[in-house]
Amino acid sequence: MSDNLERVKTAVIVEDDPDIRHLLAEVLESAGFSTVSVGNGIDGVRAVITYQPLITTLDVNMPGIDGFEAARRIRQQSDTYIIMLTGLEEEADVVLGLGAGADEYVVKPFRPRELRARIEALLRRPRAGEPGAPSTAPRQERVGPSFPTARPESEAASPPAGSEVVVLPPPAGEVAEDAGHAWLVHRDLLLDPDSRLVRLSGDDLELTRTEFDLLATLMESKRRVRSKADLTLVLRGESYVTSYFVGDADKRAIEAHMTNLRRKLGDNPANPRYIETVRGVGYRLTSELVAS
């Protein structure tokens, strides 16, 4: 059997509580994984390097190094999906976990069915080197402008309320497609859903899978507000018809991802240029009109 097939079947469990280790092994093995269980962060990092698993679950409070540091070390050497499991549920802890490289942040106690659903949702996301993942191949040399220029703010028009724009039509003399890219455009921010490229003021922007998916959803939706529950379902592939699995921890995770995304965009929530918060509802793009 190939190394790739072996990898698809492997999950590493890093957890110091033997009862939770056993429960996690049952959940993952029922989902078709073979599991490797360790009880501390240092052994967890070693296990990930050795087995190169598809999924890694990380406790936060462990002997040796904690889960945040373990996630940082793992992320330097592996693109395994990291699910952080912890009793810490403050927004600052969620931000720290996601910033360390976690793909999911699950608060204990957790429901086994919910955890399996989250795992299945993660497996639907593209990984590095897979179709739909950010490309690392050298770009071909282009003739003409290397990327479309956003319409000047003084000339931009706000789309009608409730409208959904997939690709902004190019203004006269400017290009909305180049070298096979169909860009979504908002101010000087450009995003290509197919190649998963993002450019800000002409420079490539490095985003995580989740940050890219959130930004793409908001740019496609334009001024239509997307709730935190809605965005949670989008990240899971919109395969759920009920909000049963969307809890407070999910909404805090969306807030944390949005905090990291805004930081990378250089966006100030108090005076946003790209993404604004609709208090008590969710998020949407800012208007392209400049206030006089």
Rank of each mutant, 00 (worst) to 15 (best):
253 A>W: 01
198 V>F: 06
203 D>P: 00
264 K>H: 12
14 V>A: 10
28 L>T: 08
97 G>P: 05
120 E>Q: 14
188 D>M: 00
129 G>P: 01
265 L>K: 07
58 L>K: 01
167 V>N: 07
149 T>L: 15
125 R>Y: 06
267 D>E: 06
3 D>I: 06
204 D>F: 13
28 L>Y: 10
144 G>T: 07
174 E>T: 15
60 V>D: 07
178 D>R: 14
69 E>G: 03
163 S>K: 11
232 T>G: 00
246 V>H: 01
155 E>P: 02
72 R>V: 07
23 L>C: 06
56 T>R: 08
73 R>Q: 15
41 G>Q: 08
99 G>A: 10
78 S>I: 06
292 S>Q: 13
187 R>W: 02
260 N>W: 09
284 R>M: 09
195 S>A: 14
142 R>M: 11
44 G>E: 09
13 I>Q: 08
198 V>D: 03
3 D>G: 02
43 D>H: 13
127 R>L: 04
285 L>P: 03
244 Y>T: 14
45 V>S: 04
149 T>P: 00
13 I>E: 05
15 E>K: 12
267 D>S: 13
225 V>Y: 09
64 G>P: 08
169 P>I: 11
186 H>K: 15
163 S>I: 02
103 D>W: 05
5 L>A: 13
123 L>V: 01
259 T>W: 11
61 N>D: 14
98 L>E: 03
250 D>F: 03
271 N>R: 13
282 G>C: 09
62 M>A: 05
206 E>M: 02
209 R>N: 01
33 F>H: 07
210 T>M: 00
57 T>I: 11
162 G>E: 04
91 E>Y: 10
197 L>T: 09
